[in-house]
Nucleic acid binder design. Structure first.
Length: 568
RNA sequence: UGGGGCGUGGCCAAGCGGUAAGGCACGGGUCUUUGGAAUCCGCAUGCGCAGGUUCGAAUCCUGCCGCCCCAGCCA
Protein backbone atom coordinates (compact mmCIF):
# COMPACT_ATOMS: atom_id res chain seq x y z
CA UNK A 1 0.00 0.00 0.00
CA UNK A 2 1.33 3.40 -0.97
CA UNK A 3 0.73 5.95 1.74
CA UNK A 4 1.39 9.63 1.97
CA UNK A 5 4.87 9.17 3.39
CA UNK A 6 5.99 7.22 0.39
CA UNK A 7 4.74 9.91 -1.93
CA UNK A 8 6.29 12.75 0.02
CA UNK A 9 2.95 13.76 1.45
CA UNK A 10 1.82 15.13 -1.89
CA UNK A 11 -1.88 15.74 -1.96
CA UNK A 12 -2.81 16.72 -5.47
CA UNK A 13 -5.66 15.28 -7.50
CA UNK A 14 -3.35 13.22 -9.70
CA UNK A 15 -1.69 11.46 -6.78
CA UNK A 16 -5.11 10.88 -5.29
CA UNK A 17 -6.30 9.37 -8.55
CA UNK A 18 -3.29 7.10 -8.88
CA UNK A 19 -3.57 5.86 -5.32
CA UNK A 20 -7.17 5.04 -6.04
CA UNK A 21 -6.22 3.24 -9.25
CA UNK A 22 -3.73 1.17 -7.29
CA UNK A 23 -6.15 0.36 -4.51
CA UNK A 24 -8.83 -0.71 -6.95
CA UNK A 25 -6.24 -2.67 -8.95
CA UNK A 26 -7.14 -0.81 -12.12
CA UNK A 27 -3.57 -1.20 -13.34
CA UNK A 28 -3.90 -4.98 -13.23
CA UNK A 29 -0.55 -5.32 -11.54
CA UNK A 30 1.27 -3.19 -14.08
CA UNK A 31 3.57 -0.49 -12.76
CA UNK A 32 2.54 3.15 -12.88
CA UNK A 33 3.93 4.36 -16.18
CA UNK A 34 4.18 7.97 -17.34
CA UNK A 35 5.85 9.76 -20.19
CA UNK A 36 6.91 13.18 -21.38
CA UNK A 37 6.06 13.69 -25.05
CA UNK A 38 7.82 16.76 -26.47
CA UNK A 39 7.59 17.78 -30.08
CA UNK A 40 11.15 18.52 -31.24
CA UNK A 41 10.29 21.91 -32.67
CA UNK A 42 11.73 24.29 -30.09
CA UNK A 43 13.41 24.74 -26.78
CA UNK A 44 12.01 23.59 -23.48
CA UNK A 45 11.05 26.15 -20.84
CA UNK A 46 10.21 26.10 -17.17
CA UNK A 47 6.60 25.26 -17.98
CA UNK A 48 7.82 22.06 -19.60
CA UNK A 49 9.98 21.47 -16.55
CA UNK A 50 6.83 21.32 -14.47
CA UNK A 51 5.39 18.65 -16.76
CA UNK A 52 8.65 16.71 -16.97
CA UNK A 53 9.22 16.67 -13.24
CA UNK A 54 5.58 15.89 -12.50
CA UNK A 55 5.64 12.86 -14.78
CA UNK A 56 9.04 11.78 -13.57
CA UNK A 57 8.31 12.18 -9.88
CA UNK A 58 5.08 10.24 -10.20
CA UNK A 59 6.97 7.34 -11.69
CA UNK A 60 9.62 7.62 -8.99
CA UNK A 61 7.21 8.01 -6.09
CA UNK A 62 5.07 5.06 -7.15
CA UNK A 63 8.04 2.91 -8.06
CA UNK A 64 6.98 3.02 -11.69
CA UNK A 65 8.48 3.96 -15.03
CA UNK A 66 8.98 7.13 -17.01
CA UNK A 67 9.45 7.28 -20.77
CA UNK A 68 10.78 10.03 -22.95
CA UNK A 69 8.98 9.94 -26.25
CA UNK A 70 9.34 12.50 -28.99
CA UNK A 71 6.09 13.34 -30.74
CA UNK A 72 7.69 13.66 -34.12
CA UNK A 73 4.76 13.38 -36.48
CA UNK A 74 5.17 16.67 -38.32
CA UNK A 75 8.41 16.66 -40.34
CA UNK A 76 7.88 20.22 -41.49
CA UNK A 77 8.42 21.67 -38.05
CA UNK A 78 10.79 19.25 -36.44
CA UNK A 79 14.56 19.03 -36.35
CA UNK A 80 17.27 16.86 -34.89
CA UNK A 81 18.80 19.96 -33.26
CA UNK A 82 15.77 20.22 -31.03
CA UNK A 83 15.85 16.53 -30.20
CA UNK A 84 19.40 17.03 -28.95
CA UNK A 85 18.67 20.13 -26.90
CA UNK A 86 15.58 18.58 -25.35
CA UNK A 87 17.48 15.47 -24.33
CA UNK A 88 20.21 17.61 -22.80
CA UNK A 89 17.70 19.70 -20.88
CA UNK A 90 15.71 16.79 -19.50
CA UNK A 91 18.84 14.96 -18.47
CA UNK A 92 20.09 18.09 -16.73
CA UNK A 93 16.80 18.39 -14.88
CA UNK A 94 17.42 14.93 -13.51
CA UNK A 95 14.47 13.10 -15.01
CA UNK A 96 15.71 9.61 -15.87
CA UNK A 97 14.06 7.65 -18.69
CA UNK A 98 16.62 4.85 -18.30
CA UNK A 99 16.60 2.94 -21.59
CA UNK A 100 13.20 4.15 -22.67
CA UNK A 101 13.89 6.86 -25.21
CA UNK A 102 11.29 6.53 -27.95
CA UNK A 103 10.04 8.32 -31.00
CA UNK A 104 6.52 8.30 -32.32
CA UNK A 105 8.09 7.75 -35.70
CA UNK A 106 9.42 4.41 -34.44
CA UNK A 107 5.84 3.17 -34.67
CA UNK A 108 4.83 4.50 -38.08
CA UNK A 109 4.55 1.03 -39.61
CA UNK A 110 2.33 -0.44 -36.92
CA UNK A 111 0.25 2.72 -36.91
CA UNK A 112 -0.30 2.31 -40.63
CA UNK A 113 -1.57 -1.20 -39.94
CA UNK A 114 -3.86 0.09 -37.24
CA UNK A 115 -5.25 2.68 -39.64
CA UNK A 116 -5.98 -0.11 -42.12
CA UNK A 117 -7.89 -2.01 -39.48
CA UNK A 118 -9.92 1.08 -38.75
CA UNK A 119 -10.77 1.22 -42.44
CA UNK A 120 -11.62 -2.48 -42.52
CA UNK A 121 -13.92 -1.97 -39.58
CA UNK A 122 -15.67 0.80 -41.49
CA UNK A 123 -14.53 3.42 -39.01
CA UNK A 124 -12.20 5.42 -41.20
CA UNK A 125 -12.32 6.68 -44.76
CA UNK A 126 -10.25 8.50 -47.29
CA UNK A 127 -11.64 11.95 -47.91
CA UNK A 128 -10.93 13.90 -51.09
CA UNK A 129 -12.25 17.20 -49.83
CA UNK A 130 -9.86 20.13 -49.93
CA UNK A 131 -8.68 21.73 -46.74
CA UNK A 132 -11.13 24.59 -47.17
CA UNK A 133 -13.99 22.22 -47.91
CA UNK A 134 -13.26 20.19 -44.84
CA UNK A 135 -13.39 23.35 -42.80
CA UNK A 136 -16.70 24.34 -44.32
CA UNK A 137 -18.20 20.90 -43.82
CA UNK A 138 -17.11 20.93 -40.20
CA UNK A 139 -19.74 23.50 -39.28
CA UNK A 140 -19.21 26.00 -36.50
CA UNK A 141 -19.23 26.08 -32.73
CA UNK A 142 -22.99 26.42 -32.72
CA UNK A 143 -23.94 24.63 -35.94
CA UNK A 144 -23.46 20.94 -36.68
CA UNK A 145 -21.26 19.81 -39.55
CA UNK A 146 -22.20 18.05 -42.75
CA UNK A 147 -21.11 14.58 -43.77
CA UNK A 148 -18.37 14.45 -46.35
CA UNK A 149 -19.54 13.07 -49.72
CA UNK A 150 -16.73 10.52 -49.40
CA UNK A 151 -17.86 9.34 -46.00
CA UNK A 152 -19.49 6.17 -47.27
CA UNK A 153 -16.83 4.89 -49.61
CA UNK A 154 -16.47 1.14 -49.57
CA UNK A 155 -13.81 -0.59 -47.53
CA UNK A 156 -11.93 -1.88 -50.56
CA UNK A 157 -11.83 1.51 -52.21
CA UNK A 158 -10.65 3.13 -48.99
CA UNK A 159 -7.95 0.52 -48.51
CA UNK A 160 -6.74 0.97 -52.06
CA UNK A 161 -6.75 4.74 -51.81
CA UNK A 162 -4.93 4.70 -48.47
CA UNK A 163 -2.29 2.45 -49.91
CA UNK A 164 -1.86 4.77 -52.89
CA UNK A 165 -1.55 7.69 -50.46
CA UNK A 166 1.32 5.89 -48.82
CA UNK A 167 2.94 5.10 -52.14
CA UNK A 168 3.10 8.76 -52.97
CA UNK A 169 0.65 8.77 -55.83
CA UNK A 170 -1.13 11.87 -54.59
CA UNK A 171 -0.04 15.41 -53.97
CA UNK A 172 0.55 16.94 -50.60
CA UNK A 173 -2.77 17.94 -49.11
CA UNK A 174 -4.91 16.29 -51.76
CA UNK A 175 -6.45 13.60 -49.57
CA UNK A 176 -6.68 12.64 -45.92
CA UNK A 177 -7.74 9.67 -43.88
CA UNK A 178 -10.54 10.53 -41.51
CA UNK A 179 -12.20 8.78 -38.60
CA UNK A 180 -15.92 8.21 -39.08
CA UNK A 181 -17.38 9.46 -35.83
CA UNK A 182 -20.05 12.16 -35.65
CA UNK A 183 -20.30 15.29 -37.75
CA UNK A 184 -22.94 16.73 -35.46
CA UNK A 185 -21.04 16.34 -32.22
CA UNK A 186 -20.88 19.39 -30.00
CA UNK A 187 -17.20 18.55 -29.68
CA UNK A 188 -15.50 19.68 -32.87
CA UNK A 189 -12.76 17.12 -32.35
CA UNK A 190 -15.27 14.35 -32.94
CA UNK A 191 -16.50 15.67 -36.29
CA UNK A 192 -14.65 13.08 -38.35
CA UNK A 193 -11.14 14.15 -37.33
CA UNK A 194 -8.26 13.80 -39.75
CA UNK A 195 -6.05 10.81 -38.90
CA UNK A 196 -3.45 11.00 -41.68
CA UNK A 197 -2.39 13.68 -44.09
CA UNK A 198 -0.17 13.58 -47.16
CA UNK A 199 3.09 15.44 -46.65
CA UNK A 200 5.83 15.02 -49.19
CA UNK A 201 8.46 16.10 -46.73
CA UNK A 202 11.61 14.56 -45.41
CA UNK A 203 11.51 13.49 -41.76
CA UNK A 204 14.48 14.00 -39.47
CA UNK A 205 14.48 10.30 -38.56
CA UNK A 206 12.60 8.38 -41.23
CA UNK A 207 13.90 10.42 -44.12
CA UNK A 208 11.78 9.92 -47.24
CA UNK A 209 10.33 6.59 -46.24
CA UNK A 210 6.93 8.14 -45.62
CA UNK A 211 4.83 10.73 -47.33
CA UNK A 212 1.80 10.28 -45.11
CA UNK A 213 2.07 11.27 -41.49
CA UNK A 214 -0.33 10.59 -38.60
CA UNK A 215 -2.01 13.40 -36.73
CA UNK A 216 -1.50 13.93 -33.02
CA UNK A 217 -4.98 12.75 -32.08
CA UNK A 218 -4.43 9.43 -33.80
CA UNK A 219 -0.79 9.04 -32.96
CA UNK A 220 -0.58 10.00 -29.32
CA UNK A 221 -3.13 7.68 -27.72
CA UNK A 222 -1.91 4.78 -29.78
CA UNK A 223 1.72 5.41 -28.83
CA UNK A 224 0.68 5.57 -25.19
CA UNK A 225 -1.22 2.32 -25.50
CA UNK A 226 1.63 0.37 -27.05
CA UNK A 227 4.18 1.74 -24.60
CA UNK A 228 2.01 0.68 -21.69
CA UNK A 229 1.54 4.23 -20.41
CA UNK A 230 -0.94 4.03 -17.57
CA UNK A 231 -1.38 7.74 -16.93
CA UNK A 232 -1.12 10.08 -19.87
CA UNK A 233 -0.82 13.56 -18.44
CA UNK A 234 -1.29 16.62 -20.57
CA UNK A 235 -2.39 20.20 -20.26
CA UNK A 236 -5.94 21.49 -19.93
CA UNK A 237 -6.39 22.50 -23.54
CA UNK A 238 -6.46 18.83 -24.47
CA UNK A 239 -9.54 18.17 -22.37
CA UNK A 240 -11.69 18.40 -25.48
CA UNK A 241 -9.54 15.76 -27.10
CA UNK A 242 -10.11 13.18 -24.40
CA UNK A 243 -13.19 11.60 -26.03
CA UNK A 244 -11.13 11.15 -29.18
CA UNK A 245 -8.21 9.79 -27.15
CA UNK A 246 -10.57 7.22 -25.71
CA UNK A 247 -12.06 6.46 -29.12
CA UNK A 248 -8.62 5.66 -30.49
CA UNK A 249 -7.57 3.55 -27.51
CA UNK A 250 -10.87 1.68 -27.47
CA UNK A 251 -10.43 0.85 -31.12
CA UNK A 252 -6.86 -0.19 -30.59
CA UNK A 253 -7.95 -2.54 -27.83
CA UNK A 254 -10.67 -3.97 -30.04
CA UNK A 255 -8.94 -4.10 -33.40
CA UNK A 256 -5.28 -4.54 -32.50
CA UNK A 257 -5.12 -6.08 -29.04
CA UNK A 258 -1.82 -7.80 -29.80
CA UNK A 259 0.13 -4.55 -29.55
CA UNK A 260 -1.78 -2.79 -26.78
CA UNK A 261 0.14 -2.94 -23.53
CA UNK A 262 -2.34 -0.94 -21.54
CA UNK A 263 -5.59 0.87 -22.01
CA UNK A 264 -4.09 4.23 -21.14
CA UNK A 265 -6.10 7.17 -19.93
CA UNK A 266 -5.59 10.88 -20.29
CA UNK A 267 -5.61 13.31 -17.37
CA UNK A 268 -5.25 17.04 -17.79
CA UNK A 269 -3.65 19.57 -15.50
CA UNK A 270 -3.04 23.32 -15.69
CA UNK A 271 0.13 24.48 -17.31
CA UNK A 272 2.53 26.76 -15.51
CA UNK A 273 2.46 30.50 -15.96
CA UNK A 274 4.77 32.90 -14.18
CA UNK A 275 4.78 36.62 -13.77
CA UNK A 276 7.42 38.91 -15.26
CA UNK A 277 8.00 36.57 -18.18
CA UNK A 278 6.37 35.04 -21.22
CA UNK A 279 6.06 31.36 -21.92
CA UNK A 280 4.73 30.87 -25.42
CA UNK A 281 7.08 29.39 -27.99
CA UNK A 282 6.14 32.11 -30.45
CA UNK A 283 6.97 34.94 -28.09
CA UNK A 284 10.19 33.34 -26.92
CA UNK A 285 11.23 32.93 -30.52
CA UNK A 286 10.56 36.60 -31.16
CA UNK A 287 12.76 37.59 -28.24
CA UNK A 288 15.59 35.61 -29.78
CA UNK A 289 15.03 36.53 -33.42
CA UNK A 290 14.59 40.23 -32.75
CA UNK A 291 17.68 40.12 -30.57
CA UNK A 292 16.04 41.34 -27.42
CA UNK A 293 18.09 38.65 -25.75
CA UNK A 294 21.38 37.03 -26.67
CA UNK A 295 19.89 33.64 -27.55
CA UNK A 296 17.80 30.73 -26.33
CA UNK A 297 20.17 30.31 -23.41
CA UNK A 298 20.21 33.97 -22.41
CA UNK A 299 20.06 33.95 -18.61
CA UNK A 300 16.94 36.12 -18.71
CA UNK A 301 14.99 33.55 -20.69
CA UNK A 302 12.62 31.13 -18.95
CA UNK A 303 14.02 28.35 -21.11
CA UNK A 304 15.74 25.47 -19.38
CA UNK A 305 18.91 26.48 -21.20
CA UNK A 306 18.48 30.03 -19.92
CA UNK A 307 17.88 28.95 -16.35
CA UNK A 308 20.93 26.73 -16.52
CA UNK A 309 23.06 29.53 -17.93
CA UNK A 310 21.76 31.83 -15.22
CA UNK A 311 23.09 29.39 -12.65
CA UNK A 312 19.80 28.11 -11.29
CA UNK A 313 20.11 24.51 -10.14
CA UNK A 314 17.92 21.58 -11.15
CA UNK A 315 17.32 20.95 -7.45
CA UNK A 316 15.82 24.40 -7.03
CA UNK A 317 13.59 23.84 -10.04
CA UNK A 318 12.40 20.50 -8.67
CA UNK A 319 11.71 22.10 -5.29
CA UNK A 320 9.81 24.86 -7.06
CA UNK A 321 7.74 22.39 -9.05
CA UNK A 322 6.71 20.56 -5.90
CA UNK A 323 5.79 23.73 -4.07
CA UNK A 324 3.73 25.02 -6.97
CA UNK A 325 1.69 21.86 -6.88
CA UNK A 326 -0.69 20.78 -9.58
CA UNK A 327 -4.35 21.42 -10.15
CA UNK A 328 -6.77 22.13 -12.96
CA UNK A 329 -7.12 25.82 -12.14
CA UNK A 330 -5.44 28.34 -14.39
CA UNK A 331 -2.75 30.04 -12.38
CA UNK A 332 0.18 32.40 -12.50
CA UNK A 333 2.90 31.60 -10.02
CA UNK A 334 4.87 34.39 -8.39
CA UNK A 335 8.50 34.58 -9.46
CA UNK A 336 9.30 35.14 -5.79
CA UNK A 337 8.57 31.47 -5.13
CA UNK A 338 11.23 30.34 -7.59
CA UNK A 339 13.65 32.86 -6.11
CA UNK A 340 12.94 31.52 -2.65
CA UNK A 341 13.73 27.97 -3.78
CA UNK A 342 17.00 29.12 -5.32
CA UNK A 343 18.10 31.07 -2.24
CA UNK A 344 17.15 28.27 0.08
CA UNK A 345 19.40 25.83 -1.70
CA UNK A 346 22.31 28.19 -2.31
CA UNK A 347 22.28 29.45 1.29
CA UNK A 348 23.86 26.20 2.42
CA UNK A 349 25.78 25.23 -0.70
CA UNK A 350 27.28 28.37 -2.23
CA UNK A 351 30.62 29.41 -0.69
CA UNK A 352 30.93 33.07 0.25
CA UNK A 353 33.23 35.48 -1.48
CA UNK A 354 33.65 39.26 -1.31
CA UNK A 355 33.41 41.50 -4.35
CA UNK A 356 32.61 45.18 -4.58
CA UNK A 357 30.23 45.80 -7.45
CA UNK A 358 30.20 49.58 -7.29
CA UNK A 359 33.49 50.48 -5.61
CA UNK A 360 34.70 53.59 -3.88
CA UNK A 361 38.17 53.69 -2.39
CA UNK A 362 38.73 53.97 1.32
CA UNK A 363 42.17 54.75 2.70
CA UNK A 364 43.00 53.67 6.24
CA UNK A 365 45.30 56.55 7.14
CA UNK A 366 46.65 55.01 10.32
CA UNK A 367 47.56 51.74 8.61
CA UNK A 368 51.21 51.52 7.59
CA UNK A 369 51.71 51.76 3.84
CA UNK A 370 52.77 48.53 2.20
CA UNK A 371 51.73 46.36 5.09
CA UNK A 372 49.37 43.45 4.55
CA UNK A 373 47.55 41.39 7.13
CA UNK A 374 45.65 38.19 6.43
CA UNK A 375 42.09 37.81 7.71
CA UNK A 376 40.46 34.41 8.06
CA UNK A 377 36.92 34.14 6.82
CA UNK A 378 34.54 31.21 6.83
CA UNK A 379 33.53 29.80 3.47
CA UNK A 380 30.08 28.71 4.57
CA UNK A 381 28.72 30.28 7.76
CA UNK A 382 27.37 27.65 10.10
CA UNK A 383 29.27 24.89 8.36
CA UNK A 384 32.70 24.39 9.88
CA UNK A 385 33.57 21.57 7.53
CA UNK A 386 33.56 24.05 4.66
CA UNK A 387 36.62 25.64 6.27
CA UNK A 388 38.01 29.14 6.02
CA UNK A 389 40.16 31.14 3.65
CA UNK A 390 42.68 33.96 4.14
CA UNK A 391 41.91 37.38 2.76
CA UNK A 392 44.52 40.15 2.52
CA UNK A 393 43.79 43.45 4.21
CA UNK A 394 45.79 46.63 3.59
CA UNK A 395 45.87 50.38 3.72
CA UNK A 396 43.65 50.87 0.70
CA UNK A 397 40.39 49.04 0.25
CA UNK A 398 37.27 49.25 -1.84
CA UNK A 399 33.87 49.39 -0.28
CA UNK A 400 30.45 49.55 -1.85
CA UNK A 401 29.52 53.11 -2.82
CA UNK A 402 26.09 52.76 -1.27
CA UNK A 403 27.56 51.50 1.98
CA UNK A 404 28.55 55.12 2.62
CA UNK A 405 26.20 58.04 3.14
CA UNK A 406 27.29 61.53 3.91
CA UNK A 407 24.04 62.52 5.52
CA UNK A 408 22.43 59.26 6.57
CA UNK A 409 18.96 58.66 7.98
CA UNK A 410 18.66 57.47 11.56
CA UNK A 411 18.60 53.77 10.81
CA UNK A 412 21.53 53.67 8.41
CA UNK A 413 23.98 51.29 10.08
CA UNK A 414 26.83 51.65 7.62
CA UNK A 415 29.62 54.15 7.10
CA UNK A 416 29.17 57.89 7.36
CA UNK A 417 31.32 60.80 8.50
CA UNK A 418 32.44 60.36 12.09
CA UNK A 419 30.68 57.01 12.37
CA UNK A 420 32.11 53.54 12.67
CA UNK A 421 31.39 50.35 10.79
CA UNK A 422 32.93 46.88 10.90
CA UNK A 423 34.75 45.55 7.89
CA UNK A 424 33.64 41.94 7.75
CA UNK A 425 36.36 39.69 9.14
CA UNK A 426 38.74 42.60 9.78
CA UNK A 427 38.62 45.83 11.77
CA UNK A 428 36.23 48.56 12.76
CA UNK A 429 36.93 51.77 10.86
CA UNK A 430 35.73 55.31 11.27
CA UNK A 431 35.28 57.77 8.44
CA UNK A 432 37.17 61.01 9.01
CA UNK A 433 37.07 62.77 5.66
CA UNK A 434 35.32 62.69 2.32
CA UNK A 435 37.27 63.56 -0.82
CA UNK A 436 35.46 64.70 -3.93
CA UNK A 437 36.42 65.56 -7.47
CA UNK A 438 35.52 68.84 -9.15
CA UNK A 439 32.07 67.51 -10.05
CA UNK A 440 31.32 66.64 -6.47
CA UNK A 441 31.60 62.89 -6.92
CA UNK A 442 33.13 61.11 -3.98
CA UNK A 443 36.49 59.68 -5.02
CA UNK A 444 37.94 58.63 -1.72
CA UNK A 445 37.08 58.13 1.91
CA UNK A 446 39.74 58.76 4.52
CA UNK A 447 39.31 56.50 7.49
CA UNK A 448 41.11 55.26 10.60
CA UNK A 449 40.95 51.79 12.00
CA UNK A 450 40.78 50.71 15.62
CA UNK A 451 43.60 48.19 16.31
CA UNK A 452 41.67 46.68 19.20
CA UNK A 453 38.81 45.52 17.02
CA UNK A 454 40.51 42.77 15.04
CA UNK A 455 37.85 40.25 14.12
CA UNK A 456 37.81 37.32 16.50
CA UNK A 457 39.85 39.09 19.16
CA UNK A 458 38.08 42.35 19.67
CA UNK A 459 38.98 43.88 23.02
CA UNK A 460 37.42 47.26 22.42
CA UNK A 461 34.05 46.44 23.88
CA UNK A 462 32.45 48.35 21.02
CA UNK A 463 29.11 47.25 19.77
CA UNK A 464 28.98 48.05 16.10
CA UNK A 465 25.76 47.43 14.25
CA UNK A 466 26.92 47.75 10.70
CA UNK A 467 29.08 45.20 8.92
CA UNK A 468 30.16 45.76 5.35
CA UNK A 469 32.22 43.83 2.82
CA UNK A 470 35.43 45.11 1.26
CA UNK A 471 38.30 44.18 -1.05
CA UNK A 472 41.95 45.16 -0.75
CA UNK A 473 42.90 47.44 -3.64
CA UNK A 474 46.40 46.05 -3.93
CA UNK A 475 45.31 42.42 -4.01
CA UNK A 476 42.05 42.66 -5.92
CA UNK A 477 41.28 40.26 -8.74
CA UNK A 478 39.23 41.74 -11.53
CA UNK A 479 36.06 40.12 -12.79
CA UNK A 480 33.10 40.89 -14.99
CA UNK A 481 29.68 40.70 -13.46
CA UNK A 482 26.37 40.38 -15.32
CA UNK A 483 23.58 41.76 -13.19
CA UNK A 484 20.44 40.08 -14.47
CA UNK A 485 16.97 41.18 -13.53
CA UNK A 486 13.43 40.43 -14.69
CA UNK A 487 13.10 40.56 -18.47
CA UNK A 488 9.88 42.55 -18.16
CA UNK A 489 8.90 45.50 -16.02
CA UNK A 490 5.30 44.41 -15.64
CA UNK A 491 3.86 41.29 -14.04
CA UNK A 492 1.94 40.27 -17.11
CA UNK A 493 3.53 41.47 -20.36
CA UNK A 494 0.70 39.89 -22.34
CA UNK A 495 -2.17 41.45 -20.43
CA UNK A 496 -2.85 44.36 -22.74
CA UNK A 497 -3.54 43.13 -26.26
CA UNK A 498 -3.14 46.67 -27.59
CA UNK A 499 0.50 46.84 -26.54
CA UNK A 500 3.15 44.61 -28.03
CA UNK A 501 4.74 42.67 -25.18
CA UNK A 502 8.25 43.67 -26.25
CA UNK A 503 7.41 47.21 -25.20
CA UNK A 504 7.48 45.99 -21.63
CA UNK A 505 11.02 44.69 -21.80
CA UNK A 506 13.06 45.88 -18.87
CA UNK A 507 15.88 48.07 -20.21
CA UNK A 508 17.85 47.22 -17.10
CA UNK A 509 17.33 43.47 -17.31
CA UNK A 510 21.07 43.23 -17.86
CA UNK A 511 23.62 45.59 -16.37
CA UNK A 512 27.21 44.63 -17.05
CA UNK A 513 29.84 45.60 -14.50
CA UNK A 514 33.39 45.34 -15.76
CA UNK A 515 36.58 45.45 -13.77
CA UNK A 516 34.83 44.58 -10.55
CA UNK A 517 37.35 44.14 -7.71
CA UNK A 518 37.01 40.83 -5.92
CA UNK A 519 39.02 39.03 -3.29
CA UNK A 520 41.96 37.04 -4.72
CA UNK A 521 40.32 33.66 -4.02
CA UNK A 522 37.98 34.33 -6.93
CA UNK A 523 40.80 33.46 -9.31
CA UNK A 524 40.64 29.84 -8.19
CA UNK A 525 36.92 29.48 -8.77
CA UNK A 526 35.87 26.64 -11.03
CA UNK A 527 33.72 27.48 -14.05
CA UNK A 528 30.18 26.36 -13.40
CA UNK A 529 30.42 26.92 -9.65
CA UNK A 530 28.17 29.13 -7.59
CA UNK A 531 28.99 31.68 -4.91
CA UNK A 532 27.39 34.23 -2.72
CA UNK A 533 29.08 37.58 -3.05
CA UNK A 534 28.65 38.65 0.53
CA UNK A 535 25.66 40.85 1.24
CA UNK A 536 24.77 41.10 -2.44
CA UNK A 537 23.59 38.11 -4.38
CA UNK A 538 24.30 34.59 -5.59
CA UNK A 539 26.45 34.29 -8.69
CA UNK A 540 27.33 31.64 -11.22
CA UNK A 541 30.74 31.51 -12.88
CA UNK A 542 29.59 31.28 -16.47
CA UNK A 543 31.53 28.41 -18.07
CA UNK A 544 30.68 29.54 -21.59
CA UNK A 545 31.54 33.22 -21.38
CA UNK A 546 35.28 33.09 -20.82
CA UNK A 547 36.19 35.52 -23.60
CA UNK A 548 39.43 37.30 -22.79
CA UNK A 549 40.08 35.18 -19.75
CA UNK A 550 38.37 37.49 -17.30
CA UNK A 551 35.94 35.44 -15.22
CA UNK A 552 32.29 36.30 -15.95
CA UNK A 553 29.80 35.92 -13.14
CA UNK A 554 26.06 35.86 -13.76
CA UNK A 555 23.80 37.06 -10.99
CA UNK A 556 21.42 34.23 -10.20
CA UNK A 557 19.27 35.95 -7.63
CA UNK A 558 19.72 38.78 -5.19
CA UNK A 559 19.81 38.30 -1.46
CA UNK A 560 16.73 39.49 0.33
CA UNK A 561 17.33 43.09 1.25
CA UNK A 562 15.23 44.40 4.09
CA UNK A 563 17.08 47.72 3.99
CA UNK A 564 15.99 48.26 0.40
CA UNK A 565 12.44 47.41 1.36
CA UNK A 566 12.56 49.89 4.24
CA UNK A 567 13.53 52.60 1.77
CA UNK A 568 10.26 52.16 -0.09
C1' U B 1 -27.75 30.95 -28.15
C1' G B 2 -22.71 24.35 -29.21
C1' G B 3 -19.09 21.56 -26.36
C1' G B 4 -15.34 21.30 -22.44
C1' G B 5 -13.15 23.42 -18.00
C1' C B 6 -12.18 26.65 -13.77
C1' G B 7 -13.61 30.06 -9.53
C1' U B 8 -10.70 28.86 -1.36
C1' G B 9 -6.41 35.28 1.60
C1' G B 10 -1.76 39.39 -2.67
C1' C B 11 0.25 34.45 -5.49
C1' C B 12 -0.01 29.06 -5.46
C1' A B 13 -2.76 25.15 -2.96
C1' A B 14 -5.04 21.28 0.67
C1' G B 15 -9.96 20.19 1.79
C1' C B 16 -14.64 15.48 -0.69
C1' G B 17 -20.97 17.02 5.17
C1' G B 18 -18.45 18.05 11.37
C1' U B 19 -17.06 23.64 11.95
C1' A B 20 -10.80 26.86 6.63
C1' A B 21 -3.66 22.48 6.13
C1' G B 22 0.84 24.15 4.10
C1' G B 23 4.18 27.23 1.11
C1' C B 24 5.47 32.03 -1.06
C1' A B 25 4.56 37.19 -0.23
C1' C B 26 3.54 40.68 3.57
C1' G B 27 3.82 42.89 8.90
C1' G B 28 6.16 42.57 13.71
C1' G B 29 9.66 40.45 17.69
C1' U B 30 14.34 37.70 19.01
C1' C B 31 19.16 36.63 17.45
C1' U B 32 23.14 37.83 14.24
C1' U B 33 30.69 40.19 12.53
C1' U B 34 26.05 39.05 5.69
C1' G B 35 20.17 44.87 7.18
C1' G B 36 21.61 37.44 4.67
C1' A B 37 20.40 33.03 7.37
C1' A B 38 17.87 31.11 11.65
C1' U B 39 13.78 31.52 15.00
C1' C B 40 9.00 33.13 17.11
C1' C B 41 4.37 35.64 16.34
C1' G B 42 0.54 37.76 13.19
C1' C B 43 -2.11 37.30 8.57
C1' A B 44 -9.77 34.14 5.21
C1' U B 45 -15.98 34.84 11.14
C1' G B 46 -15.16 32.78 5.73
C1' C B 47 -14.34 29.42 0.47
C1' G B 48 -17.49 33.81 -7.01
C1' C B 49 -22.93 35.34 -5.83
C1' A B 50 -28.02 34.07 -4.30
C1' G B 51 -31.30 30.67 -2.56
C1' G B 52 -32.25 25.62 -0.68
C1' U B 53 -31.36 20.69 2.00
C1' U B 54 -29.19 19.50 6.95
C1' C B 55 -28.45 19.64 13.96
C1' G B 56 -24.26 21.16 10.92
C1' A B 57 -22.33 23.09 4.01
C1' A B 58 -16.13 25.36 0.98
C1' U B 59 -17.98 20.37 0.62
C1' C B 60 -24.92 18.16 -1.40
C1' C B 61 -29.09 20.60 -4.65
C1' U B 62 -30.99 24.80 -7.74
C1' G B 63 -30.26 29.28 -10.22
C1' C B 64 -27.11 33.09 -11.52
C1' C B 65 -22.20 35.72 -12.37
C1' G B 66 -17.15 35.79 -13.99
C1' C B 67 -12.83 33.81 -16.45
C1' C B 68 -10.30 30.16 -19.79
C1' C B 69 -10.10 26.53 -24.03
C1' C B 70 -12.11 24.46 -28.88
C1' A B 71 -14.08 25.63 -35.74
C1' G B 72 -4.99 23.22 -38.11
C1' C B 73 -4.44 18.37 -43.32
C1' C B 74 -0.05 21.88 -35.58
C1' A B 75 1.16 19.40 -31.14
Amino acid sequence: MIDQNETGGKTNFIYTMIKDDLEKDRLKGKPVHTRFPPEPNGYLHIGHAKAILLNYSIARDFDGKFNLRFDDTNPIKEEQEFVDSIIEDIRWLGADWEDRLFFSSDYFEIKYSFARRLIEAGRAYVCDLSQEEIRDYRGTLTEPGTDSPYRNRGVEENLALFERMRKGEFETGSRVLRAKIDMSSGNLNMRDPVLYRILHASHHRTGDKWCIYPMYDFDHPFSDAIEGITHSLCSIEYSDHRPLYDWIVDNAVELMPEVVEFRSRQTEFARLNMNYTVMSKRKLRRLVEEKHVAGWDDPRMPTIAGLRRRGITPQAIADFQERVGVSRAESTVDLALLEHCIRQELETTAPRLMAVLDPVKAVITNWPAGETEMCAMENLPGNEEAGTREIPFGREIYIERDDFMEDPPKKFHRLSPGKEVRLKGAYVIRCDEVIRDEKGVITELRCTYDPQTRSGRDTSGKKIKGVIHWVSVEHASRITVNLYDNLFTVENPEEDSETDFVNHINPESLVVCKNVPAEPAVAGAAPGSRFQFLRKAYFYLDPEASGDGTPVFNRIVQLRDSWARMQK
